[in-house]
């Protein structure tokens, strides 16, 4: 089966970084904004946020699980099962 796809919605992102933290803890065992496969670009003046995925992302879904603002979701909701 191919890699599951994670979709993002930057409009909903609140900039909390929980996805970045959860990714690096799950995949690297530490909290690291550098190592995390998901990156958050913040415009602090306007509080606008842009999410992006590094090539290394394995679609483990930790970021989706951690997001409480509906900014990250599975492309096909059923694929989580």
């Amino acid at each position: 089966m191919g890699k599951k796809e994670i979709l993002k919605n930057d409009e909903n992102c609140a900039g909390c970084m929980l996805c970045v933290l959860s990714c690096s803890l799950f995949n690297f065992g530490v909290f690291s904004t550098e190592k995390s496969f998901i990156k958050l670009d913040k415009d602090d003046r306007t509080q606008r946020f842009t999410l992006s995925f590094d090539d290394g992302c394995i679609s483990c879904g930790e970021c989706v699980k951690s997001c409480k603002y509906n900014a990250l979701m599975w492309k096909d909701e059923d694929s989580r099962n």
């Binding site: 609140a14 900039g15 909390c16 929980l18 409480k68």
Partner: peptide, 13 residues
């Protein structure tokens, strides 16, 4: 819209 401090799931801002 809402935004949040670091590591916050509440988003009261």
């Amino acid at each position: 819209r809402d935004f949040a401090c670091f590591a916050c799931p509440i988003g009261c801002l």
